[in-house]
Design a protein around this nucleic acid. Structure first.
Length: 415
RNA sequence: GGAGGGGUGGCCGAGCGGUCAAAGGCAGCAGACUGUAAAUCUGCCGACGAAUGUCUACGUAGGUUCGAAUCCUACCCCCUCCA
């Protein structure tokens, strides 16, 4: 790979963020020469971002730290169209209300990592220009620069056609919308670079070409590799769903645990990508052998959690993990808390039901199995009787710890 | 337009009148081992129930039968080949 001189690109390169860059030398020169504005787009398909978005977010942070200007572009407009890439069926159309709700959630995710208050990072919504487009003028200005011939060669389109899955004309337009976004950001904010996942390369190039043809602008593309775990799992996806960034979707303790349970082979790579520790420190950590490597995992978990939820929450999660797994102290307040109506407890609640309320199991049957297989614990005592009831007397200490297996724990408190 | 094949649990996939809540694999959960890792081994793995059990489920809707995932009819959807 090209040796970069600019702080931004050389840092990205040495930390493993770069998959492809258009015109690396020219972009590097640009970064050395001036304050550069660059953007990443996020569609409003859910009300929180997840770990899969983290690589992009980290790049925006680095941009900010190295004296450039990041733009987080929320896809309030493009979400109405729906990105077909990576999907073999049409996305469900979201209502305006859902989009607004999701947008609020994304905002919460993003502002954990970027400071939009000071104005060093910009938060924009492409609905701003997409909503007011006029069909015929748009087609005449932008549509003429896209040939269907070329659009049909795109991976996202080919996939649908090959599988004979419908691709609606609405979705077919997504790539044009994204190209138009880049054009608008270039015109309005002098944005020069779009970053994104490797699957976005084609869409980004479209924007670059559009801006060149229409305005003679010189724009750039940078994509990140698809991050997978050593065993081939897509980053941020677990069996129980995405690893969300918003605390109302995933408690900080569980976020901490996600990182704490990183596979050995991923520790170094993840420290580079998902923390801001100096490289020298990371090199020292990843050299640790065997059980020693757990120290590196704890640091990874702490740093990653601190970036997302703040240091205070990270400390709490860390303390709870230590109390739980290493019997150091009894700081359990970092655990996820579930509140249960006092009245319902007063009557004596079946332990099975409590497991359901705590969200540790999906059905009564599953709770029974858990007890029968010796995986259910109440304040560290094995529950042997699945018909056991629990009443208010149990809660003299305030809260009770309910455990499913060795790793999943919840504090239950009467309300 | 013609001929054939198929739709089964989160996914893949066997079953082709009763012994079928449905083989096997993957994923998942619990246990053992360990380092809160990986690998391995054991058990579990539709719902409800303390339990005999009850209910729901094999594309959809009807039907035949004491009894249907399995047979019949109609419909919907997918795939392959020929034109």
């Amino acid at each position: 790979m090209h040796r970069f001189r600019s702080e931004f690109l050389s840092t990205l390169a040495s930390r493993g963020y770069i998959h492809q860059v258009s015109e690396p030398e020219a972009l590097d020169d640009l970064f050395c020469r001036e304050r550069v504005t660059a953007y990443v787009g996020f569609d409003c398909t859910a009300d929180s971002l997840h770990v899969g978005h983290l690589v992009s977010i980290m790049m925006l942070r680095l941009l900010e730290r190295t004296g450039h200007r990041p733009i987080a572009l929320i896809g309030g407009g493009t979400t109405k169209v729906g990105d077909p890439s990576g999907r073999d069926e049409t996305r469900q159309l979201l209502s305006d209300a859902q989009i607004a709700h999701n947008k609020a959630g994304l905002l919460r995710s993003l502002s954990k990592f970027l400071d939009f208050e000071k104005g060093s990072a910009l938060l924009l919504d492409n609905a701003e220009w997409l909503d007011e487009l006029k069909y015929i003028p748009f087609l005449r200005e932008v549509g003429v620069h896209f040939t269907v011939n070329r659009m049909l060669t795109f991976e996202s389109v080919k996939l649908r056609l090959e599988r004979e899955q419908p691709l609606t004309f609405l979705e077919f337009n997504y790539m044009i919308m994204q190209a138009y976004d880049f054009l608008q950001l270039a015109r309005r904010y002098d944005c020069r670079l779009q970053m994104g996942g490797s699957d976005q390369w084609g869409n980004i190039i479209n924007g670059i070409e559009l801006a060149r043809k229409l305005d003679g602008r010189h724009l750039f593309a940078l994509t990140t590799p698809l991050i997978t775990t050593a065993s081939g799992q897509k980053m941020g996806k677990t069996a129980s769903g995405a690893v969300w960034l918003n605390a109302d979707r995933l408690p900080p303790f569980e976020y901490f645990q996600y990182w704490r349970n990183t596979e050995d082979a991923d520790v170094g790579r993840f420290l580079r990508l998902f923390t801001e520790l100096p490289l020298a420190e990371i090199e020292r950590l990843e050299r640790l052998q065997g059980a020693e490597l757990n120290e590196a995992k704890k640091i990874l978990a702490f740093e990653a959690t601190a970036l997302c939820h703040g240091r205070a929450e990270a400390e709490k999660a860390k303390a709870a993990a230590e109390a739980l797994f290493e019997h150091k102290g009894d700081r359990l307040d970092g655990l996820p808390v579930v509140e249960v109506d006092r009245d319902r407890l007063a009557e004596g609640m079946p332990i099975i039901e409590l497991f359901m309320l705590a969200g540790l199991v999906q059905s009564n049957s599953e709770a029974r199995r858990l007890v029968r297989q010796g995986g259910a614990r109440l304040d560290d005592r094995l529950i042997e009787d699945e018909t056991m009831r629990i009443d208010l007397d149990r809660f003299k200490g305030g809260a009770v710890k309910l455990s499913a297996g060795k790793k999943r724990h919840v504090l239950v408190r009467p309300r």
